[in-house]
Amino acid sequence: MTCAGAHELTLDVAAGERVALSGRDQATATALLRAVAGLNPVGGRGSRTPAERAWRARACAWLPRRPVPARSQARAADVLARSAHPAAAAFAAGLLGVAELTNRPLHGLTPGEIQRLHWARVIGCVTAGAGVLLADEPAEGLEPDDCEALVLLLAELPVTLLLATADPVLTALCDRRVGTTSDRPGAPRTPLATGVGPKSLASAQN
């Protein structure tokens, strides 16, 4: 695939596999995730058609790096409402301990509370049929307890996981790590893969 910030980078991922994208060039990892989600152009084009954009929205759950602008006036309930399955997202918010926050503005919540709301939204998307989770530095700015909860959540979700992270605990959760290098400015980026082989969807669900 060719996308802004990732030149001719090809990555094959098996169903149910967990892949950590890490290395010195995290911008490429972010660009790759956004391309898969249909947020960045691929081959100079965007998501092509409304049907393809709708398909990507159903197939891929997206966990952004910075989910809320500092001055956003959105409420916590708005995050859950954007899930493909709002009822499942609301139920998950209760399990994650943030259901009582739904009427509060996001700018007044902690990073951990905001991330837990987005985890609930993602759970709703997976309930609705999303088989791929794209997560961009999801542990950034979180307290240790929230990081531990994130690891447990990612370990349990029955999805194919593409995870851009420099966190060693999250990297260890994955089946393999893929990095990129750039020897000089403007040089083609080369994917580097380490770790064990693909993990089947059946084993990911067990």
Rank of each mutant, 00 (worst) to 15 (best):
A81S: 11
R116L: 09
L134K: 03
E100G: 10
V122A: 13
D167L: 13
R48S: 12
P64M: 07
T28I: 05
A139K: 05
S203D: 08
G108Q: 10
V178N: 04
A88M: 04
V42F: 02
V13G: 10
D145C: 07
G5D: 12
V42Y: 03
T28L: 03
S203E: 14
E156L: 01
L80R: 05
R53Q: 11
P191Q: 09
A4C: 06
A76M: 10
A166G: 13
V68Y: 05
G131R: 15
W62S: 01
D167Y: 08
A70L: 08
G43M: 10
R116F: 13
E17M: 03
A202N: 08
A139I: 12
A164F: 05
A128F: 00
A31S: 14
A29C: 15
G179H: 10
T2R: 14
G131C: 04
S47N: 04
H118W: 15
D146H: 15
A204N: 12
W62V: 06
P191Y: 03
V42C: 07
A89P: 01
K199A: 12
D136V: 10
V68P: 00
A61P: 11
D136E: 15
V42N: 03
W62A: 02
P67E: 10
G112E: 08
S200N: 04
A164T: 06
V132N: 00
R189I: 11
R176I: 06
L157T: 11
V159I: 04
L154T: 13
A57V: 04
T181M: 01
L150W: 11
T190C: 06
L33E: 11
P86N: 12
G141C: 08
R66V: 14
P144K: 12
G131F: 06
H85L: 03
